[in-house]
């Protein structure tokens, strides 16, 4: 079960998730504090220790569009949060798979802040409203990377195999 800590609309760009001015910060471990930093409320909820460990952000279409900056993924990855979006932009999706950020594509998802989501392989159930939403599974090529624990171990294995 994951609690929705906030919801966002369509076309949320990486400039919103992780503003360009913090891009000199490159180490993934240093990035979490800057998630949604231009929105003090969202940033506060992500950083708050009062919120439950299992959290979700619910987004509209084309989440993560714009820049290829990987910090937009590592900043969220530092927060034990699942992103449930109607659709996800290509580079963000690939970066999320590569770094192991928990993402779920549910094209019809409806949820409000505070709702509880139960996410299984095929569906996301909004326990608060009782509605359930279909999940589009990631293609097999991407699941392989997730199963390997991300692109770094995946590449390492390939490299060692020659």
């Amino acid at each position: 079960m994951a609690k929705v800590i906030f919801t966002v609309g369509d076309d949320i760009s990486t400039d919103i998730i992780y503003p360009g001015r913090y891009m000199a910060t490159v180490l993934p471990s240093e990035t979490p504090q800057f998630a949604f930093i231009d929105d003090p409320e969202f940033n506060g909820r992500l950083l708050s220790t009062d919120e439950p460990q299992a959290r979700a952000i619910v987004a509209g279409e084309n989440f993560g569009c714009g820049s290829s900056r990987e910090q937009a993924v590592s900043t969220l990855k530092g927060h034990e949060v699942v992103i449930v979006a109607k659709s996800i932009a290509r580079i963000f999706l690939q970066n999320a798979v590569n770094l192991g950020l928990d993402i779920v594509i549910a094209p019809n998802i409806e949820a409000s802040t505070g709702d509880e989501l139960e996410i299984s392989e095929n569906q996301a159930i909004n326990k608060t409203t009782g509605q359930s939403f279909e999940i589009v599974p990631l293609p097999k090529s991407r699941q392989e990377i997730i199963e390997a624990g991300g692109l770094i171990p995946f590449t390492r294995t390939r490299l060692l195999a020659g």
Partner: peptide, 18 residues
């Protein structure tokens, strides 16, 4: 365009995976 980790993988292998 690709992300930094994917580029690291390209630097290592010379190809893009998947």
């Amino acid at each position: 365009g690709i992300g930094a980790t994917e580029m690291a993988s390209v630097w290592a292998l010379g190809k893009a995976l998947n």
